[in-house]
Design a protein around this nucleic acid. Structure first.
Lengths: 220, 220
DNA sequence: TAACTGAATGAACGATCATTCAGTTATTGA
DNA sequence: TCAATAACTGAATGATCGTTCATTCAGTTA
């Protein structure tokens, strides 16, 4: 796990700090996603969150910190939720499939925020950007682990797993990036299923791989 | 082709207009990519282009027009160059492979500008955004055509071509989006070759498809 | 040589915020 | 009950640009 970044606050009660920051976060993600970072004013955020502009500066030391907090929230959610959701699966193929499903589901929940990450990571200071990218890398590692398990276990044929990770990750992100094109054609479930057909099936070994893939379709 | 957008200019000589706009475009892409749209001032652009700030307003009516011009330049380049580069190939599989190679090569040439498109399309007015997205859609259609030719000609098995297009396009864009991760591991050529292995090979029909794919490796 | 044209300049204007801080309200604990 | 402390407010400040425009200047025509 990374060194969790400290954002300075003048408020002492940690409970209150978390509550207010969550409140500000919600407003900020909504507005940044909608109007973009630079077009969103601190006053906008304050009004949407139902507080005064000055109060934001009790919980964040500058506007950029609010953006950084929002983007870290996104990558931290990926990193935290994917392992939780694949914990049940023991079979490597099942784990891989479930990690894709989990990732897509999280992206779907954080669709606006995921887009925001693509648009606004460059607006961060180098230090903040480094943290966000490091978080993204850590969730990539989870997927990479699943792929390598499939290869090592003989479920996948030899394949460039380094590159395949990015295919998986981009497929999940693309649900947010191209949502305007997909929303009318696919449900999230359909999108995930198609993704497995495109990204998992082709690499399965004929017997062991396909066998495991079939088995997970009709469980119990 | 789309209705080419007119950007207002007070300067009468069309030759000069094109020359100056190209000059401004170069500075703008460099600076927007580097510092982001909002952090780049008109004065920055003027200085980098070697002209005065006021002169920019003789060639564009507002700052946003400069951004719009830059993003349209990117999508227009895709749309113009891909067909040119695949004109030689007659075999559908070859056409598809060459379109990927062409797209990746153009992305590589316009790497900064491609990133800029991801980051800044939302900063455009709805009208401008619509034009940029329409341009992007038109180059997608080119790839879609190649895939469908492969399917119809019996080179590809039945596959969700709608979705596969986005896989191809995203693969090409990812060269720009994740360049920081790829630059040390792959040359552009290697990246393209790996892409064909991941995105073309799995869908080839055993005889006709694979045959055509093999043939293009050792031509004459 | 004078009159004209339109390209180019850059100082000045005005609007927009991020940030601060003097003052107000709420909470705590003795 | 009443300090004392913490949380909160929102008007004021000051810096930053996008945009304008009066002016200069090079080149062209009369």
């Amino acid at each position: 796990m990374s060194a969790p970044i400290k954002f300075a606050s003048t408020v002492t009660d940690p409970k209150l700090v978390e509550e207010r920051r969550t409140q500000i976060l919600g407003a900020a993600i909504k507005l940044f996603s909608d109007k973009g970072y630079y077009r969103t004013t601190i006053l906008d955020i304050a009004k949407t969150a139902g507080i005064s502009s000055g109060l934001i500066y009790q919980y964040f030391s500058e506007k950029e910190d609010v953006l950084c907090f929002a983007l870290l929230h996104v990558v931290d959610t990926y990193e935290r939720e994917i392992p939780t959701r694949i914990a049940g699966a023991k079979d490597p193929v099942d784990r891989l499939c479930q990690s894709v499903e989990a990732y897509c589901t999280i992206v779907d929940n954080l669709r606006d925020a995921t887009l925001l990450a693509y648009r606004s990571t460059k607006s961060l200071s180098p230090a903040g950007r480094k943290h966000v990218m490091a978080g993204e890398q850590r969730s990539n590692q989870i997927i990479l682990g699943c792929i390598n398990e499939c290869i090592d276990g003989g479920y996948f044929r030899e394949v460039n797993s380094d590159l395949l990770v990015y295919q998986f990750v981009m497929y999940c992100h693309t649900w947010a990036l191209k949502y305007w094109a997909f929303r009318d054609k696919y449900t999230l479930k359909q999108y995930v299923d198609e993704g497995l057909k495109l990204l998992v099936e082709p690499y399965l070994t004929p017997r062991k791989g396909r066998g495991a893939f079939r088995k997970r379709q009709e469980p119990l």
